[in-house]
Amino acid sequence: MTEEKRRLIDENGIRTDGRRWDELRPLKIEVGVVKNADGSALIEWGKNKIIAAVYGPKEMHPKHLELADRAFLKCRYHMAPFSVEERKNPAPSRREIEISKVIREALQPALFLEDYPRTAIQVYVEVLQSDGGSRVAGVTASALALADAGINMRDLVVGCAVGKVDGKVVLDLNDIEDKEGSGDMPFTFMPNLNQVTLLQMDGLFTLDEFKQAVELGKAGGMKVYQAQREALLKRYFDGAAPDSSAPAAEMMEA
């Protein structure tokens, strides 16, 4: 950064993209976008455009790695070469490998892997266009893809990044704030179980700021959860009224 540090929040408390400290970027979610996949979702969040797709439970390859008592959860976070300002080499980078791991570990607490011994569940997160918070957007989309695939889940997983910009704790960093701000904390949790499943951070936070960040992340995440719910319900029920009045004989039996 050769330029002098610019202000990211103006005197009226407005951020570079016009938001206030506690506002989310525009968010759009669609479930069921990859025809061949067992489950999938597209999330557009700020400039992020991310597809998550799930295959599974399926046969484990290589066979000798299969687990006798549960499914093997695999996750691949990958960025398209054109997803960032400067073309990215398509080979997986160390950053992508680390993010793949933390995404896997963010999703795992929500899954009943023990219901699928000897199988594999594969989650693919493909970043078509990247903006701040791509990993939490990836987790949010992946949880939907897993639910769409019909894997037994304790809860969805949802996330939102929080950061420190011009000395203030703010919600949902955009790309500029991510790069030029003084702290970033991607954060995901299970909304009903109230359990944190991913937390990374950099920058300096006082204990008070850290507390604020966690609270803000949760509040922001709950808004994202509403969008997540609506997308999933739309995919399966598409406005059809709940049919409590239906005679029992009309319903399926297991």
Binding site: A37, R76, Y124
Partner: peptide
């Protein structure tokens, strides 16, 4: 020109 058949594109593909 480069092309990658993403592993998400079909059930029989692997990364």
């Amino acid at each position: 020109v480069g092309a990658e058949v993403l592993p998400m594109a079909a059930s029989y593909l692997e990364a």
